[in-house]
Design a protein around this nucleic acid. Structure first.
Lengths: 203, 203
DNA sequence: GTCTATACGCAGATAGAC
DNA sequence: GTCTATCTGCGTATAGAC
């Protein structure tokens, strides 16, 4: 039964994604993954041989999706500023859908960096993601201000990614204060980041 | 030997801090902690009874230190903008000294939120940290612009904390690109964040 | 207080029936 | 392909000598 194989594999990957995202490589339990996939623990090994191998597949998928969001930087039909704006929309929508993505990636990288270097190199060469060189070009052409590109890229990613990373903290800090608070939502966040970018890159 | 006890306890806490920061509650190994503290595994239990109890002490210490950085918000001798600037200096210096702090706190919170809510409430009431209400006051007095305080606080923390959180990513992404790159350093980061704050709060 | 030796449980992995 | 039953190793925790 070919179709049923696919389904099982898919169900496992789905359950594994959830578990690894939440608990990381060490914290996640194979039993848990099996239960959530509605199958037996032994089947996990039948399909993926080991926990680490299963993890690798999940991780690679996540990383690749993350980098896909940066493809827009290579869209030469748009002016630089527009590309960045579009990236902001993309990445915030994406992280909104997978709020634990950044956490997941950073968490695992901080434990094993070697593996990551290799994968990033591959992905970047693959997809030609070069915001920094893009900025430098823009500066040479005189289209944007002479800010430090590295600091700018840091700031940009910070503003987009951190709110999702730290949402548990924000919720705790703000909800525990007297003033009742509500999530400002993605649109306000996007607008604020774009304001920052426009301010920063204006000549 | 009272003094020797203290030393051992201190050495354990030091080693535990390192291990838990790097590997988290699940990933860290008691054997590892014992080795690094230069003592036997059994002694860990003699002093702290269980891994979780040891972890709790480390975590609480870290959280408390983190929140201490916000004390400056209550310094009524300074104008609001100055307090925020000072906070930026504080927090960036602090995170620079303990780069894995944010990671550590967020990582563990994302697994167990309940525990965190309680602790934050205590710390906040303790130290009277109210940047948001501070901003609202400033707005009522007409000292600062009418931005959304919540978004602003998000942005502020993002800019300060994320670079340390994600430094493994940044290193990988940027160092794997053709252009050789160097860390812009804390001063540039501080300056950039302050620029943002000044821009955001200007009427 | 500090050690060695050991108990105990859990989670990853395998064997083998169906 | 999927299951039940079982093995194995590792990591936390304890007992007990010094």
């Amino acid at each position: 039964m070919q179709s049923k194989d696919k389904n099982t594999e898919q169900k496992i990957l789905e359950a594994a994604k959830t578990a690894f995202m939440k608990y990381g490589l060490y914290g996640a339990r194979m039993q848990d993954i099996a239960d959530n996939a509605g199958i037996n623990k032994a089947l996990l090994h039948y399909y993926f041989r080991s926990k680490e191998k299963l993890f690798d597949q999940v991780f690679e998928g996540a990383l690749s999706k993350y980098f896909e969001q940066m493809l827009v930087f290579s869209d030469t039909s748009l002016p630089v500023l527009e590309r960045i704006f579009k990236y902001i929309d993309n990445i915030i929508d994406f992280l909104s859908e997978y709020p634990q993505m950044s956490m997941f990636i950073i968490k695992e990288i901080s434990v094993d960096q070697e593996m990551f270097y290799e994968k990033v190199k591959m992905l970047k060469e693959d997809k030609g993601i070069h915001l920094i060189s893009l900025l430098k070009e823009g500066q040479e052409k005189g289209e944007i201000s002479n800010i430090d590109p590295v600091v700018f890229v840091m700031n940009l990613h910070s503003l987009c990614a951190y709110p999702f990373l730290a949402s548990p903290i924000f919720k705790a800090i703000i909800s525990s204060s007297a003033s009742h608070w509500e999530d400002p939502g993605n649109n306000k966040l996007k607008a604020s980041v774009k304001d920052f970018v426009a301010f920063r890159l204006a000549k």
